[in-house]
Amino acid sequence: MIRIKARAPTVRGAVLPFAWGAAAVAYKYGCPLARQGGLGGRIVTSAVFFAVGAALVFHVRRALLRELRQVRRVARAAQSVVLRPLPPRLEGLNVAAAQLSADRGACVGGDLYEAIATEYGVRVVMGDVRGHGLAALGTVAALLGSFREAAHDEPELDRVLRRMDRALARHLREQARTEHPSHGGPDPGHPVVEDFVTVLLLEIGENGELRVLNCGHPWPYLLSGSTVEPLTRTDPLPPLGPFALPAKLEAHARGHLLVGESLVLFTDGAEDARDARGRFFSLPGALADVVRNHTVTPQAVLRTVFTALLGHTDGRPTDDVALLVLRNERGMKPGAWDSDLSGPGARLRPAMTRPQPTTRR
C-alpha cells in the first residue's frame, strides 16, 4: 500500500498567520485611529482587516496548492509503476498504448494492459476492472503483478489466466475484510459478487500465430489492408471474479497476425462512449478512417481514435478508455516500408517479406 505522508508545517508557515493576526489586533486596540467612530476611521479599519484577511486566504491557498502538487507527483510516480509505458518494439512488433481516465486529473483508472516478450512468444493482457479512477488502482496492481510473473513462468496461456484469477480472488478477499469487519459485516472470505474484471489474454508466436483466452472482454479488431473486422465473433468466457474458471481451459488458436497487419485491443469504454444525444461511439468507423486516410501505424491509430472519441463525447468521457495496438513488422528492415501514394489512403506495404501462412482460422 502506498502512503502519502503529510509534510509538517514550516516555522514560516506557522509564524506568518500569527504575525498577521497579531498586527490586526494591535491595530484594533493600540491605534487611536481604530478607536475613532467617524467614517474615516471605520474605512481605514475595514481596509486593514480586509488586507489581513486577503493575505491569510492567499497564504492558505498557496500552501494547499503546494501540498496538492506534492500529492500529484507521488500519485504519478505510483501510477507509472503500476501501468508502466510499453516498449515501442517487442520481437518485431510495433507497439503503442494509451489510457484515458474518466476521473479528471487521474492518469490511471480501472483499465489495465501489458505486453511482455517471453520465451513462449509475446504475451499481452488487456483488462477492465469494474468501476473507474483511482479506486480501482489496487485491483489493477494485483492483476498486473500476477500477469508479469506468470507470463514468464507458465508455458501455457491457460495457467497464466488461472494465476491471475487466484491473485484477484486474494485481493478481493482482503478488500472485503478491510471494508466489512467481522463484527456485523458479511463473511470476509467471500468477496462481493459485484466485483469483477474482464480480461483478454493474447499470445503471438514467432510465426505470427495467435492464441487467445477471453473472459468477458471485447474482442480486438484486426486491421488488414483496408478492412476492419473483429478477430472472432465467438462468445467469451464469463468475467473473472463472480464465476469460477472451467475445469478444462485451453487457449484458442485464432489464425495468424501477418506482416503488415495490426491488432487493436480496447476496453468497453471506447464502444460505450455516448454523445449528448445518446449515440454510441463507432470504434470500427474510426478505425476505418485510419486505414482509409492515414498511414497505418500504432501511433496513428491511437491519435485518430482518441481524437474522434473526445470529439464525440465533447471531451467528457464517462468511463475509462484504454487502447493497445500491435502491428506485425517482423522481417522488415528499418526504412523497408514504402508508402503507396496511388490513392487518397496512403498505406504502408513491405518492400520485403518472409513467407507467411495465408489461411485464417
Results as ranks from 00 to 15, higher is better:
residue 1 M to Y: 03
residue 8 A to M: 09
residue 8 A to K: 10
residue 9 P to S: 14
residue 16 L to W: 02
residue 20 W to V: 05
residue 22 A to P: 01
residue 23 A to K: 04
residue 26 A to V: 09
residue 43 I to V: 14
residue 50 F to A: 09
residue 52 V to Q: 02
residue 53 G to W: 01
residue 54 A to N: 05
residue 56 L to C: 00
residue 59 H to T: 06
residue 59 H to S: 04
residue 60 V to Y: 13
residue 66 R to K: 14
residue 67 E to V: 14
residue 67 E to G: 10
residue 68 L to D: 12
residue 82 V to M: 05
residue 82 V to L: 10
residue 84 R to W: 06
residue 89 R to V: 15
residue 96 A to H: 03
residue 101 S to I: 05
residue 101 S to Y: 06
residue 103 D to N: 09
residue 105 G to Y: 01
residue 108 V to C: 10
residue 110 G to T: 07
residue 119 E to S: 15
residue 122 V to D: 02
residue 124 V to H: 03
residue 125 V to W: 02
residue 127 G to C: 10
residue 132 H to P: 08
residue 138 G to K: 00
residue 141 A to G: 08
residue 145 G to R: 05
residue 146 S to K: 05
residue 148 R to H: 06
residue 150 A to D: 00
residue 154 E to H: 01
residue 157 L to E: 04
residue 170 R to D: 11
residue 172 L to V: 00
residue 173 R to L: 13
residue 176 A to R: 15
residue 183 H to K: 06
residue 183 H to W: 15
residue 184 G to H: 10
residue 189 G to C: 01
residue 196 F to P: 07
residue 197 V to N: 04
residue 201 L to F: 12
residue 201 L to W: 00
residue 205 G to M: 06
residue 208 G to D: 10
residue 213 L to E: 04
residue 219 W to M: 09
residue 219 W to T: 07
residue 223 L to H: 02
residue 230 P to W: 08
residue 232 T to D: 13
residue 233 R to D: 07
residue 235 D to S: 15
residue 239 P to D: 02
residue 246 P to K: 04
residue 263 L to D: 07
residue 268 D to V: 01
residue 275 D to A: 14
residue 275 D to R: 06
residue 278 G to A: 09
residue 280 F to Y: 14
residue 280 F to R: 11
residue 281 F to Y: 08
residue 284 P to H: 04
residue 287 L to I: 13
residue 290 V to M: 05
residue 293 N to R: 15
residue 295 T to A: 12
residue 296 V to Y: 01
residue 296 V to Q: 11
residue 297 T to L: 07
residue 297 T to D: 05
residue 298 P to Y: 06
residue 301 V to C: 07
residue 309 L to N: 03
residue 312 H to L: 03
residue 312 H to C: 11
residue 316 R to S: 00
residue 318 T to A: 14
residue 319 D to M: 13
residue 320 D to M: 02
residue 327 R to Q: 06
residue 330 R to M: 07
residue 330 R to I: 02
residue 333 K to E: 15
residue 333 K to S: 13
residue 338 D to S: 15
residue 339 S to M: 11
residue 340 D to F: 12
residue 340 D to P: 01
residue 341 L to K: 09
residue 342 S to N: 11
residue 346 A to Q: 08
residue 350 P to S: 00
residue 358 T to C: 03
residue 359 T to Y: 05
residue 361 R to C: 12
